[in-house]
Nucleic acid binder design. Structure first.
Length: 489
RNA sequence: GGCCCCAUGGUCAAGCGGUUAAGACACCUCCCUUUCACGGAGGGAACAGGGGUUCGAAUCCCCUUGGGGUCACCA
């Protein structure tokens, strides 16, 4: 039997890290087994439906490197792949259940239900449906209809019935129907089935063999199992993965702003999809060896269900940053320069020279080993991205010292006489003779030069920095530096 | 509150009856370097508590405590 897994999000917002991780685990296992991965959209909630959401999911999933064999925007033998296109299918199965006497119309109002639930809570019981509409006669139903009440449909859940399943990550789990809420609604009053019913029909029809999902679905499982039982279908294997926790130790809420949690945002921040792919795989799963930097194919090869973690995991943004930095450093420079281009082009107003691809490439090369994500580049390299620099107080102090002023003056003079463009090699020669002329070396020599060039005392390799800055910009800065030093004295 | 899940350093985690209790991130120290960063070498830091079972328990069982999930015409 071929293994078939799916990711079935609800199109109500953006793809977030929890969802991406669920998709990833399902994808990884499907690929590991040589099976199929399906993308299905559970859009039964028409009120919360967001139009562009499904498309955005698809784009972000692809960006991450997750491809699906069947599903929305792709097609396949079990099309259609979104609930709202499958309504007639559900209707058939609901009818089957009604015919078998396993589902019935319920005319209770929300108020009536709430009242009953309150009373049960008061009595210390689990709120459960009383079964009031279980045995309505045809005439009673007509009477309700005459009052203008539109029914919902409930599944008859056996009393005192225990369902058991072996969770792929947690082992045997069992639930008593007395604690799962009783007969529950499978069709809303608008005629659209409820998630817990639609997924079962879909998973069955699409021959899903394994369902890996978040721990918050554990309590949904018995309800879904009732549906499988009602139809006499074999249920897939379920695996409930631990939750990703926010800073407060609770399940990551989409409204939680303490961490960046949407894939779209990481994309904008200049994270590499490979790094996120790798990081997400390690959140709730661990490989056998000690290697943590694992690529797409390695992950597929190594992924297995036995090593999923049972306890929740805090999202460690610092580790993601570290991992992204690792991927950044290993990334092909030309490709990286292309990825960095959008960030650099934002600075083109203040620094027209950024337009040159070769210049960008050198700049990216200079900072490649320092960045955590690409969006940091403009700030890290700010001395390169505008004509004027902010002189740090350290830099000012340095230029006001006796040797600082001496070196600055000589350097400016050398710049004035210089006509050739500066290269890293010529910069080295230049500094060498500057040292000889001023009788300085080490920090006495390099700090003032760097201060003039960048406004800072610290930075990347000085020779390359000078070359990349270029002669005219350097000379302008040298003059500006000299001006403020003399005027403040 | 009912039902359910979980519990190893600050964080992610290995471990599945016998280990000096891995490794990674973060932190600290040192080295490298004109500086910053990178890199390299070190360091501090954990089995929630209490009972059992066993020759032996981080590993198995029970209780307590703590944390979490879920109780929708949301998924």
């Amino acid at each position: 039997m071929t293994v078939r897994l799916r990711y079935a999000p609800s199109p109500t917002g953006h793809l977030h890290i929890g969802g991406a991780r669920t998709a990833l685990f399902n994808y990884l296992y499907a690929r590991h087994c040589g099976g199929a991965f399906i993308l299905r959209i559970e859009d039964t909630d028409i009120d919360r439906h967001v139009d562009a959401a499904a498309e955005e999911f698809a784009q972000n999933l692809r960006w991450l490197g997750i491809e699906w064999d069947e599903g929305v925007f792709q097609g396949g033998p079990h099309a259609p792949y979104s609930c709202m296109e499958r309504l007639p299918i559900y209707a058939r199965y609901v009818q089957e259940l009604k015919d078998k006497g396993l589902a019935y119309e319920c005319f209770c109002t929300e108020d009536e239900l709430a009242e009953a639930a309150n009373a049960q809570v008061q009595a210390g019981e689990m709120p459960h449906y009383s079964g009031r509409c279980r045995h309505l006669s045809e005439s009673e139903r007509d009477a309700f209809r005459a009052q203008g009440r539109t029914p919902t449909i409930r599944l008859r859940v056996p009393d005192a019935h225990t369902v058991t399943f072996t969770d792929l990550v947690r082992g045997p789990l069992s639930f008593d129907s007395r604690s799962t809420g009783g007969d529950y609604r499978i069709v809303k009053s608008n005629g659209i089935p409820v998630y817990n019913f639609a997924v079962v029909v879909d998973d069955h029809l699409m021959e899903i063999t394994h369902v890996i999902r978040g721990e918050e679905h554990i309590s949904n499982t018995p309800r879904q199992l009732y549906v499988y039982e009602a139809f006499g279908w074999e249920a897939p294997r379920f695996g409930h993965v631990s939750l990703i926790l926010g800073e407060n130790g609770k399940k990551l809420s989409k409204r939680d702003e303490s961490i960046v949690q949407f894939i779209e945002q990481y994309k904008e921040l200049g994270y590499l999809p490979q790094a996120i792919f790798n990081f997400l795989a390690l959140l709730g799963w661990s490989p056998e060896g000690e290697q943590e930097l694992l690529g797409h194919d390695e992950l597929i090869q190594q992924f297995d269900l036995n090593r999923l973690s049972k306890s929740g995991a805090y999202f460690d943004a610092a580790k993601l940053s570290w991992m992204n930095a690792q991927y950044l450093r290993a990334h092909d420079l030309d490709d990286l320069a292309g990825l960095a281009k959008p960030y650099l082009m934002r600075c083109v107003e203040t620094a027209p020279w950024t337009k040159a691809d070769s210049w960008q490439r050198e700049l990216v090369a200079l900072y490649q080993d320092q960045l955590t994500c690409l969006s940091e580049l403009p700030e890290a390299a700010r001395a390169f991205l505008s004509v004027d620099v902010e002189w740090s107080s350290e830099a000012r102090a340095c230029l006001r010292t006796e040797t600082g002023a001496l070196v600055a003056g000589q350097f400016t003079e050398m710049l004035r006489q210089l006509s050739d463009p500066i290269t890293p090699d010529s910069a080295r020669e230049l500094l060498k003779s500057l040292g000889q002329k001023t009788g300085t070396k080490g920090k006495d020599l390099y700090f003032p030069v760097r201060a003039i060039a960048t406004g800072e005392l610290h930075g990347k390799d000085l020779n390359r920095t000078l070359a990349l800055l270029g002669h005219s910009l350097l000379y302008a800065r040298a003059q500006a530096a000299l001006a403020f030093v003399s005027e403040s004295e």
